[in-house]
Design a protein around this nucleic acid. Structure first.
Lengths: 335, 335
DNA sequence: CTGAAAGCGCTTACAG
DNA sequence: CTGAAAGCGCTTACAG
């Protein structure tokens, strides 16, 4: 794999590498005769010259690379988000390098280290539990970074988030309006603030309601999520299967739960009503149209790249966290 | 974002940068006294030294970056594959940079150009229609690359594929065994060989069968796929809705088709039987367990990284295309 | 056991 | 209008 360099062009054209660099980069301010310009361009073309961005990066201290760290790129939410980020990034000349942390703080830390050694210009991160140290290090180094989807407290890294608490409250109120006997929140056993916010929204709606309704929570771990959801719902419904509503706080939880309902022939919404956080293609194949909370992924990607680009250009620019609003997409899964 | 360099360490330790480089890289063959070793390591630690891989890359001509070009990273098939590739790559010290071609030859070409300028050590590509020129250029430049999932003819780039024709034949035979009146192949209107192979497998099974069965093909475009599938199935079933089997040649087609069946309350397998290519989480929420063809993604990722790594180490090493075998996962969607 | 020096492929302030 | 030169942060063959 022999690659040609600016030096080769200079040699053939009998000019200096400086001149070649100037014309290849179309530098204003530099007056180069049309003749040499043309000559250089022609030679570059003919020897199939490809600039070496690594060399350029070393000199300019910019790689035009952005690191994206998510929990798992094969997760539909993140892959969809990644795709939108890719598009926005490309428009500003950035390429994405992607890593999955698997909710593991050490792996997360390792990826940050790896990407920063690769000299990415900025980092887009979905932090995991226990990543405070790694993130604060970023602040200390003044490394441009923005959190997305999730956040951790007490860090100055700007974030692009949604109104988790508010929308969960609203979703819960949608259920409260319907006079269910029991409303169940299905979420994760976690310390992640964005998930706790969802739970808080649920709690607050219940607390502020004048209705007397039984509530229950099924909180599952990050491992064996699917089984735990099933068992949780099973235990719940084995006693009573009517007039109950389920609030799934993520699409992964919803898919696990809906699958259980489907297999056990429990009708939605006749026997159990459902509202879920996040979209997934899977809802398309469920017999009942699911009512769900839709995140504005496009806008999230947009804001993220904009903020990060500003930070890269000027780290001192005051970039603050954006809370985007969400909407409830009405299906037919609530009685 | 002030970063420390090897030079800073050398200065503080009062040694040469060469010495620092040697101890930081643990170079054998170089005898450095324990005392200076220790001193250097301590200083590196204390000033929070992070090696600049860009500089190293420029010198060594290796970036430890791999470019992955898929049609769309938000597509479940590719994101799942990407995740497995990420894991395998990381084990060998590579990081993935990812781009989506959107089935567009120009964008595909642009991504190859971009990634090669970023000096990725190798390329993993799912080629698109019309990408022959770009791929042959890669061969000419002796750029390490491997095709995955798809291939194009007449190129020397090795590929990691599945036995598309054979498994489609087998799947079609599964249907032929059941004496359906009509068997329908639902695929893409395309020139992509791997998809044509699936169609050929279908054709060949039908041709070699002794049964007399009506067959039909619904071939849709890459745009508006979903609508075209629905219309195709609608036209088909408006006349007769019994004893028909559908062979979906991709999970995207299957999701579109199954959704149509669901909405129109057409029972699987009572009224229509179904077999589909590829897995998707969405099958979980469909009332009937789908019988589908499962690709060995783990193995594909494994082979791909292995071949690419060999090619990077020694381009002349003879790496040949691998055809992996697939299996039919039995569900309950065939009568 | 350690260092001086060249060089990877670029950019850019400066000189002429 | 063009070029010589320094330098980005590393590695490594060579000398001592």
């Amino acid at each position: 794999m022999k690659r040609t360099s600016i030096k080769d062009i200079a040699q053939i054209a009998q000019v200096s590498v400086a001149t070649v660099s100037y014309v290849l980069n179309n530098k204003e301010g530099q007056k180069i005769s049309e003749a040499t310009k043309e000559k250089i361009l022609k030679i570059a073309e003919s020897i199939n010259y490809k600039p070496n961005k690594i060399a350029k990066s070393l000199k300019t201290n910019k790689t035009k690379l952005l690191g994206l760290i998510v929990a798992d790129i094969s997760n539909e939410f993140y892959s969809t988000l990644a795709r939108k980020l890719e598009n926005k990034a490309l428009k500003k000349g950035y390429t994405l390098i992607i890593g999955s942390s698997d909710e593991n703080a050490e792996k997360f830390q390792m990826l940050i280290e790896l990407f920063s050694q690769q000299q990415v210009d900025g980092l887009i991160i979905a932090p995991v539990a226990g990543s405070e140290v790694a993130l604060n290090q970023l602040i200390k180094e003044e490394y441009p970074a923005v959190m997305i989807d999730r956040y951790i407290n007490n860090t100055k890294i700007p974030a692009v988030l949604i109104n988790n608490k508010e929308i969960s409250e609203k979703a819960t109120n949608r259920l409260l309006d319907k006079d269910f006997d029991t409303i169940v929140y299905i979420g994760y056993q976690t310390t992640m603030p964005h998930l706790l916010d969802r739970e808080k929204g649920f709690d607050s709606a219940i607390l502020n309601s004048e209705k007397s309704v039984k509530t229950k929570k099924i909180l599952v771990g990050i491992e064996n999520t699917s089984d735990e959801v099933k068992n949780g719902i099973k235990n719940l419904l084995d006693n009573k299967v009517s007039n109950t509503a389920l609030f799934f706080s993520s699409n992964k939880l919803a898919v696990a739960g809906l699958k259980y309902l489907l297999i056990n022939n429990i009708k939605v919404p006749e026997e159990v009503s459902v509202i879920a956080f996040d979209e997934t293609e899977a809802y398309n194949l469920f017999p009942t149209e699911i009512t769900y909370i839709k995140q504005p992924l496009e806008e999230m990607a947009d804001e993220t790249i904009t903020i990060l680009d500003h930070l890269i250009t000027d780290y001192k620019s005051l970039e603050k966290t954006k809370i985007l609003s969400t909407q409830i997409i009405e299906g037919k899964s609530i009685k």
